[in-house]
Amino acid sequence: MSNISIRIFNIIIKYIYGGIISLEKLENSVIFDLLIISNELNLDELGEHLQTHFFNNDAD
């Protein structure tokens, strides 16, 4: 997939192998990109986690 930045790719790989993702230090734009890619890769649990993060943090 050529539309994934190196930064997003590294976060996804860490999530796939470790099952943990830290969102505290990430900008909303990066989290949104993660949400899009998680949908494309059918990472449903990650997608739900990211959506919950946006909802709970009242992100624009």
Rank of each mutant, 00 (worst) to 15 (best):
M1K: 13
M1E: 13
M1G: 13
S2V: 14
S2M: 14
I4G: 00
I4F: 12
I4M: 12
S5R: 01
S5C: 05
I6L: 11
R7T: 11
I8K: 00
I8E: 00
I8G: 05
F9T: 05
N10F: 11
N10R: 12
N10A: 15
I12S: 02
I13D: 01
K14Q: 11
K14Y: 06
K14C: 08
Y15N: 02
I16C: 09
I16M: 15
I16N: 02
G18E: 01
G19D: 04
G19F: 02
I21H: 04
I21R: 01
S22Q: 12
S22H: 15
L23T: 01
L23C: 01
E24M: 04
K25H: 15
K25Q: 12
E27P: 07
N28M: 03
I31M: 00
D33L: 06
L34K: 03
N39K: 14
E40V: 04
L41T: 02
L43Y: 11
L43T: 03
D44Y: 13
D44Q: 12
E45C: 11
E45D: 12
E45Y: 07
L46K: 03
L46E: 00
G47F: 07
G47H: 03
E48G: 08
H49V: 13
H49I: 13
L50C: 03
L50W: 00
T52H: 09
T52S: 14
H53A: 06
H53G: 06
F54G: 00
F54E: 00
F55H: 13
F55T: 13
N56I: 05
N57T: 11
D60S: 10
